[in-house]
Design a protein around this nucleic acid. Structure first.
Length: 561
RNA sequence: UGGCCUAUGGUGUAAUUGGCAACACAGCUGGUUUUGGUCCAGUCGUUCUAGGUUCGAGUCCUAGUAGGCCAACCA
């Protein structure tokens, strides 16, 4: 009813304009075209959300197309990982395609170009060709093979295909313009010889088409209406169109390439080469290490697909350089987890508390809300007894009134339990506090409705009963890089900015309800943050990853002082 | 001594296409709260520069400045 006109990004404006000038809505079709040479990362996630989001918005099909034209780098393993990641993000593709599906068609079209005098076989080395290419400010020079006869070109191309030549001896080039101000138009290579097995076509081919020759033609074959790619391909558009011109037939959909700025996330890197280096050098354990910006890493870290989609939606899409602060991504995962993650109690840095007036050997099970923001989340029981753990940070012998926690002579409420008062504490020989002796008010039990239970005390602490606590490995993560843009420094390598303290492994003491937690379960450790169960967990030892901390205004206050 | 692209708060994106510069995050203030969480209210602050067109310019024009991209048998 009160429908607000949603603001459109510039790509949606282009689509809307096309819709008004002749395109039918039913003709709209998009694609997400990864090369299966590595794992998808947060940058791909933005592109996936863009293309599939457009598909959802316009009711248009979106193909998942693997750009698999380089058998030297591509593997089935990556195809499988990519499909799993796209599905995990919550999208479904119309059809699964491969550029390699089109090798025959591409070959036939290439023959057509040769026959039309638009392509030729060059038999120089790549160095010689590079020399003739010119520079951005100087025109190139023509290859001595540029004017080979059509028949000779045809014969050589056939022999290339038949495997008669070594790698590097011949290539097929488009005959365009060696003086173009666009370097890509200076007779670009269409095919090269590669005696390598392809993960799908095996050894059927020993010539493989290059990206530029493949991409637009694949869009055309699939009748993609809008082909969106990142800005570094802007210069390729002219070539994309030139190749399309060679095969385009009237009345068919002519795909349109448009470019958007890749979205950069602060405090990380996303190039496959750099991510691979992090894995190889042992900085992280694997491609799905929870510190990695890969989709599989984010998943293992505890991110939800919703949070990633919301992130992609709010950062939008444009053409200017950007650096998006990772805190925005963290905001979205908190925002979603706050709604869905059950609250539990766990102590990560334990300090023993003894309730001196609580009977020894006694225990009781207290009612605890699973999520105060969600009535339907229900409740659970947590055990309470004479000896408890609280966080070390939650006790001080003396503190000013800004410290809403436990201090000698002060009171505090134990979440879901009783109000306690710190009476004394004991220290080890080094002066470290190792135990706090407290008394509790038996009438102050949470939810009992008694006058005492309604008393307001400043400060509520989480806790866990020592006798009942579940020991768990807890992995705490910090940013992988200390610099917000580690790979943009001219004089420094991105590896120089690796944060040596990005991982801390500790033992946590958790409430026993967590005993049956399953891998990928997500919970909030109250007052600490969101955590999820890592796949490394076993029946004997449960492992939690910290996804993200809660917003911490106390930390800001202490920092200021 | 080239070509292409870009320029809006600390960050990211909008602006009904020439008509009151908005939204989210971050920051700051306060309120609620048995999580120093959540939630609520308020606040902060911007159209790269110089000209021009116009009743009116973030938007159009001219010049400049700054940044990014382009010379792989990679994608």
């Amino acid at each position: 009813m009160s429908e607000e006109r949603a603001s459109l990004n510039f790509l949606e404006h282009i689509i809307e304009e096309d819709l008004q000038t002749g395109y039918e809505k039913a003709q709209l079709r998009f694609r997400f075209p990864p090369e299966p040479n590595g794992y998808l990362h947060i940058g791909h996630a933005s592109s996936i959300c863009l293309n599939f989001g457009l598909g959802l918005k316009y009711g248009a099909p979106v193909n998942l197309r693997f750009d698999d034209t380089n058998p030297a780098k591509e593997e089935q393993e990556f195809v499988d990982a990519i499909k799993r990641d796209v599905e995990w993000l919550g999208f479904s593709w119309d059809t699964e395609r491969y550029a390699s599906d089109y090798f025959d068609q591409l070959y036939d079209w290439a023959v057509l170009l040769i026959k039309g005098g638009k392509a030729y076989i060059d038999s120089q080395s790549s160095e010689e060709m590079a020399d003739q290419k010119g520079t951005p400010t100087e025109a190139g020079t023509e290859s001595p093979f540029r004017n080979r006869s059509v028949d000779e070109n045809l014969k050589l191309f056939e022999e290339m295909k038949a495997g008669k030549f070594e790698e590097g001896t011949h290539v097929l080039r488009a005959k365009i313009d060696m003086t173009s101000s666009n370097m890509l138009m200076r007779d670009p290579i269409m095919y090269r010889i590669l005696h390598k097995a392809h993960h799908r076509t095996n050894t059927d081919w020993c010539i493989y088409p290059m990206y530029d020759w493949t991409h637009g033609e694949s869009d055309y074959i699939e009748q993609v209406s809008h082909s969106f790619c990142t800005l570094e391909f802007a210069m390729h558009r002219e070539l994309y169109n030139w190749f399309l011109d060679q095969v385009y037939e009237e009345n068919r959909m002519r795909p349109k390439q448009r470019e958007f700025a890749r979205r950069n996330l602060s405090h990380t890197v996303v190039s496959k080469r750099k991510l691979a280096k992090l894995v190889e050098s042992g900085v992280v354990s694997s491609w799905d290490d929870p510190r990695m910006p890969t989709i599989s890493g984010l998943r293992r870290r505890g991110y939800t697909p919703e949070s990633i989609r919301n992130f992609a939606d709010t950062i939008g899409i444009a053409k200017r350089e950007n650096l998006i602060d990772v805190s925005l991504l963290e905001f979205h995962v908190r925002d979603h987890l706050n709604k869905i993650a059950p609250r539990v109690m766990g102590v990560l840095n334990p300090l023993k508390v003894v309730l001196t007036n609580y009977p020894e050997g006694e225990e009781e099970w207290l009612e605890a809300e699973n999520n105060p923001g969600d009535e339907n989340a229900g409740s659970r029981k947590v055990p309470f007894s004479r000896e408890l753990y609280i966080e070390k940070e939650d006790f001080k012998e003396e503190a000013n009134r800004k410290f809403f926690r436990l201090k000698l002579g002060g009171e505090v409420r134990l979440k879901n339990g009783y109000i306690i008062r710190a009476e004394s504490c004991t220290k080890d020989t080094n002066g470290n506090i190792i135990e706090v002796q407290c008394t509790y008010d038996p009438k102050s039990k949470s939810g009992s409705g008694s006058e005492e239970s309604l008393r307001k005390v400043k400060g509520t602490l989480h806790w866990v009963s020592i006798a009942h606590a579940l020991k768990a490995e807890v992995r705490l993560y910090d940013r992988l890089f200390t610099d917000e843009s580690p790979d943009t420094h001219k004089d420094k390598d991105f590896m120089d900015f690796v944060n040596p303290e990005s991982l801390e492994v500790i033992t946590g003491y958790l409430e026993p309800s967590l005993k049956d937690a399953q891998i990928e379960d997500r919970v909030q450790f109250q007052r600490l943050g969101y955590f999820c169960v890592d796949p490394d967990s076993t029946a004997e030892k449960i492992v939690f990853n910290k996804t993200v901390g809660l917003r911490d205004t106390w930390a800001k206050i202490t920092q200021k002082d």
